[in-house]
Design a protein around this nucleic acid. Sequence first.
DNA 1: TTCTTTGTTGACTAAAATAATCAACATAGT
DNA 2: ACTATGTTGATTATTTTAGTCAACAAAGAA
Lengths: 162, 162
Amino acid sequence: MKLSTKGRYGTRMLLDLALHSGEGPVPLKDIARRQEISQSYLEHLITPLMAGGLVRSTRGARGGVSLLKHPRDIKLSEVIQLLEGSIAPVDCVNHPKICHRSQLCVTRDVWGEMKKAINGVLETTTLQDLVKWQKQKEAARRGSESLHLREAASLSNEGGDQ
Amino acid sequence: MKLSTKGRYGTRMLLDLALHSGEGPVPLKDIARRQEISQSYLEHLITPLMAGGLVRSTRGARGGVSLLKHPRDIKLSEVIQLLEGSIAPVDCVNHPKICHRSQLCVTRDVWGEMKKAINGVLETTTLQDLVKWQKQKEAARRGSESLHLREAASLSNEGGDQ
DNA sequence: TTCTTTGTTGACTAAAATAATCAACATAGT
DNA sequence: ACTATGTTGATTATTTTAGTCAACAAAGAA
């Protein structure tokens, strides 16, 4: 039950893209550097995302990859579907016919519930959410960093950790 | 994001065991036949279940495998944990240290939510639930079968569902 | 006791998936 | 032209999956 690097790296690539949208096309090289993923591998991950209409690429100098939809309109369920295929934990959940036991199999019903649960998370999370959380995290870090530097000069209103 | 045959077959083995508990030890051979899984493979799946204290085995003639706990006390989360290891979709959810990006990584947070969602299903489903659903399904099938055979002669008092 | 039934363990293997790398090529700016 | 960039396909090493097989151990039955 592990997500492969396709889904993980691909999601991070899109997040990186979302964080740098509005600056024109983003070269894979830059994403590779920032995300610490080999560019050669990203080249392959971008293909299904283009086929899925999530991104567009521009060749040549000053080229790169651009998001085609607003981050708020890109659900993680869509991303994972493109990169990993169905998130169903077993194939018979989507295709009952592949096993003659499907009809009477109750474990299959449980795997179906699992699929629903996973989908619930991925359907309600958008790229915009990731962007928001990322910015919050970075702001929080900068806050605590300077807090540390200034020897806790003013620590009354940081908030955010819990 | 697929469950391997370990988790799937192992769960079915335990369900089969639960359905035949109270009849003494159940030989792997019988489970293999009913569940249509090779006995050689089941031999390997039983090992972690014994180590986890879910079943006990008896060697020799009339031997077999027996459940050590009541089906109502066996949660699927426990079963899957033993057979597949953690259900976390990525390792960094359980072990932040393995990636220096963990602290600032928001995709990791999403995978954490996914883990929670999956766990929610597996923690609230017991072997007893599977047994109950299985019996309901079989009763329903018998109902519609005889209904079909007898051309709906008497369909008032089937009962047994719920 | 001896035979048979059953589980136990470890070695081995075929096939597939994973996670890339590399090179040749296409295209668009400069 | 030259350079920066994406595109595609071939290739590969490694790991995981999904088993099989055989030698062995133990317990009941004859």
